[in-house]
Design a protein around this nucleic acid. Structure first.
Lengths: 290, 290
DNA sequence: TTCGCCTTGTTACAAATATAACAGAATTTT
DNA sequence: AAAATTCTGTTATATTTGTAACAAGGCGAA
């Protein structure tokens, strides 16, 4: 909506009385399935409305555009703005912060990333991945790289509570080959690999793959080379106004996965959590109150 | 939608592996603001994706269309169908997921958390905290707990690139008192403490405070007891439909802080990053391309 | 009924847009 | 390390698409 807040549909409505018979016919045709019809070629629009080509051209000028292409361009802008989620719209997040403040810029970017990422995930694949992670008949290996090991660690920390036979492998350490000794056919690897993709991680993935392990990959929009070996891949958008990439979206996916996995065998999870609590009580690690 | 049930976005996704570098770049650009960008002229799309005009033409053919106009026509059909079908409304994040799916529930909760959290942060305080973290005349200590050490680690990893004199202290380890030996008046502590608040972390904070250090605290909405000692506190909302709390919002804050801090002395940051790159090159840790 | 104006459509032209052919660059294979 | 293949971009051509000019048709007023 380049000028003002009026959509083109609004403008057509306002002008409706000033239009001639053929033009009105056209106007209704445009509004009929808005905005799709207006985005096609002029001739098609004319034909659809059963008016002549110049009628379209003239009406577009009456609406204040310099030509049909300009009209289309604004329609596209409108569409773009519309598709972008209402939440991402310029609510300023931190009240009182100038909208150019890092807090706002960054948050906008992350919300945007989340939206794009979630839009590309097939729920069925996600469920399948969760089932694999929950499968206690197989061993589970979690692999992170230089930066992503924090995410891997986070997933490890929680899956460890949920189920036995979980191992955290750091591909940056050169001790990782030891961990692969016990890998059996059908074991599950959750691998994190985002830019800059690490050679170690790829090698590890190849070995795991060669031994018949199943790979679930968390990567970015450009996709780590590991994805060719992976059974299931999830790619997050990670671009933010910073010299580094954002891990927030991937973190969200990981947390969601944890939530889903804990529910698959909730009784078992609950029982394990209670036992863990008991042990915590004995170590007096946590405060009892507040 | 016109043939079969596959949207063009789906088709692009399926083909993604068969595409070349430039084509993949283009594909992402199309999905970026879909479908608006695909409805403009071919040249504009090419320019937006920073590829050449024929690359677009070729990819469109790979997707199985007889030409760009045909591709556009189908996009419009899709749009038409989508607008007519109220169920296709954009309130569901992961399209095709029943709205009760974990992916949607969890994401909704996190977005909500972000809104609440950001709404309560005073930008001035945030800037002040960033300045403290950036101040290279003081030593910086980063402290995490059992779960939050992943966040602490993440912050550490990046601040370490930005500036010297950064230390990561794990309060869960019993070696932490050693780290406090060198603490001087005015040194800065960034402490993470969320439910369940840890005794170790509180003790550590007390000692740091006694030595005249400044404390920046990342906690949750109920606030860790450390906040009474803290110079600046940030409380995140962390409730999600899961047995555990969410770290995603706090992660967002941490990343924003990293972005802000790197800008305070950008020249210095850049220089350090370049040196790091050189060292990476020598270790061949990362893949050179893609 | 006839004149004049407004509206609409047909035709012709100009501009833009998409496709095809080619050549250089990059990547992979031998 | 060289050759072959694949990929990518530049240039040129053909087609489509939009616009302008013009002519025919319709409608109201005298």
């Amino acid at each position: 909506m380049s000028d003002g807040v009026l959509t083109i549909a609004d403008r057509i409505h306002n002008k409706l009385d000033d239009l001639t018979r053929a033009e009105r016919q056209l106007a209704h045709s445009i509004l009929e399935n808005y905005p799709a019809s207006g985005l096609g070629p002029l001739a098609a629009l004319a034909k659809g409305a059963e008016v002549s080509v110049p009628t379209v051209a003239r009406m577009v000028q009456k609406l204040g555009f310099n030509g049909y292409p300009e009209f289309q361009a604004e329609l596209r802008e409108e569409l773009k703005a519309k598709v972008q989620n209402p939440i991402a719209k310029h609510d300023t997040w931190a009240e009182g912060a100038p909208s150019g403040h890092v807090l706002n810029q960054f948050t906008d970017a992350v919300i945007d990333n989340i939206r794009h990422t979630l839009g590309q995930i097939a729920p069925a694949k996600f469920d399948e991945a969760c089932a694999m992670v929950a499968d206690q008949t197989k061993s589970l290996y979690i692999v992170g790289g230089r930066v992503t090991h924090t995410l891997a660690e986070y997933l490890f920390l929680h899956t460890q509570v949920i189920r036995p036979r979980v191992t955290h492998v750091q591909s940056t350490s050169n001790t990782w080959p030891h961990y692969l000794l016990d890998v059996a056919e059908g074991d599950v690897f959750v691998i994190f690999d985002v830019r800059r993709y690490e050679n170690n991680t790829l090698k590890l993935a190849e070995m795991a793959h060669a031994r018949g392990a199943m790979i679930i990959l968390f990567t970015d929009q450009w996709r780590s080379p590991v994805h060719q070996l992976a059974h299931i891949s999830f790619s997050s958008r990670i671009v933010v106004p910073s010299a580094w990439d954002s891990a927030a979206t991937t973190m969200l996916l990981v947390e969601t996965m944890i939530a889903a996995v804990q529910n698959i065998d909730w009784d078992g999870t609950k029982e394990r959590m209670e036992r863990l609590e008991e042990m915590f009580d004995q170590t007096k690690l946590f405060r009892k109150f507040t």
